[in-house]
Write a protein that binds this DNA or RNA. Sequence first.
RNA 1: GGCCCGUUCGUCUAGCCUGGCCUAGGACGCCGCCCUCUCACGGCGGAAACAGGGGUUCGAAUCCCCUACGGGCUACCA
Length: 458
Amino acid sequence: MSAHRYRFAPSPTGFLHIGGARTALYNWLLARKSPEDALVLRLEDTDRERSTDEAVAQILDAMEWLGLDYDEGPFRQTERSDIYAERLEKLLSSGAAYWDTAGAGEVKLAKERSGGAGYRGTPVPEGTAGAAVRLRVPDEGHTTVNDVIRGESAFENRLLDDFVIARADRTPLYNFAVAVDDTDMGVTHVVRGEDHLSNTPRQLLVLKALGADPPLYAHLPLLHGTDGKPLSKRHGAASVQELRDIGYLPEAVRNYLALLGWGYDAETTFFTTHDLIEKFSLERVSRSPAVFDEQKLSWMNGHYIREMDTAELTRRVAEWMAARDISGADDPRLEQAVAAVKDKVSTLAEVPRLVGFAFGPVETDPKAWDKVMGKEGARDLLERARTALAGVDPFDEAQIEQALQRVVEDTGAKPGAVYQPLRVAITGKTVSAGIFESLALLEREEALQRIDQALDRL
RNA sequence: GGCCCGUUCGUCUAGCCUGGCCUAGGACGCCGCCCUCUCACGGCGGAAACAGGGGUUCGAAUCCCCUACGGGCUACCA
């Protein structure tokens, strides 16, 4: 059995968008299928402007968070100029490539005259003003892309231009550089976005000129936004960094991303990463674009949170809070707080939102106050609840519940009429964790104090 | 314009290759009911799709053709 080498090539713009993350994930899943396979990370950074070291570091950081490790790389295009120079020379001396002075305008003109046939240049000596290197494309035959997902697509050579593979200063262009890297790095599988399908014949032509065997290609459908337009930076594409900030779990993101454009069977929705590695296959990848739907991600994330061990979840929440200087990250009651809201949240960010009251002063929402405290009998019930709570010992959920239920029974009030004023008094909001849990979390002294404060205001 | 790719519920998809088991299945979302201290969670039920038109066939979501629509590429960007 031979080893496979998968190539993942993000643009290091400091921004790993959802589509890129999915491509990374698919490559990673494939490369992890067998121990001898490898994931090669090649960075598409001919564009020096955007690919600063900092931007590269951000991409790598996002991949690490997602749990996508690589075996070789990151290879930066800017650091491989020797290799491209050598291959370029080889093509030039064999006549497979030549210097030509035509610019975009001339190419367009020539194509119009020839009725749409591909542009063919006239070789000039190196150093001629404005000359760049073009690859000689055959006039006859087809260049056929054999795609694992889409099958065969044939492109007529006659219609393809002799395209530029290097600038006047011999720096390589994308279609050349990438093909050189594929052979040079021994890449066997290229799994990338569909936007590269039309570039593939050009890369195939370079490979052929170099006398190299092409890798296996798989072009994934693009990802679209909720408006049905392709996702792009200026088009509200979420990045994995943003997903991390909002409080998504990497395992949930992996699961969700895997399902964007791929399905295993009619009913399986949840996959452990182990399952994914085992079950994922390119043959089952969809051919049409998928829309990134955060609602479903959110639901799935909630599922992962509920399934997670509370201690582990607490660790994640603490880490998330600490990274954002949110108070309570190192509070010993955090685990108790997490347990109280585990069923209610769908992201890590919602945890401090629901239990933050326990880790800092009450911030009373005026609307909540008016709505609840303005009700008939609110003050009286709050007072009775206070009295009942003062005698609870130990001050734990079970005892608190008993005591408060007695208040409900004795007064004949609706449970909500007793609990809501209490909730507003101690949390400042109408929405929070369960009232018994919230009270216990606060502990008696603090709870009573907050109730007294509320009573004073009433 | 040329070339290439695509089109199943609002969304992600199963089914398509190897026509009949599809009165098209599941999930998110939505609506209703139940549970309930708020919000959630959970349970139950519901509305909701084969882009259109021609063929082939006893039979087509599945095979063929056309049209429409969407997208990509067509840079001395990647």
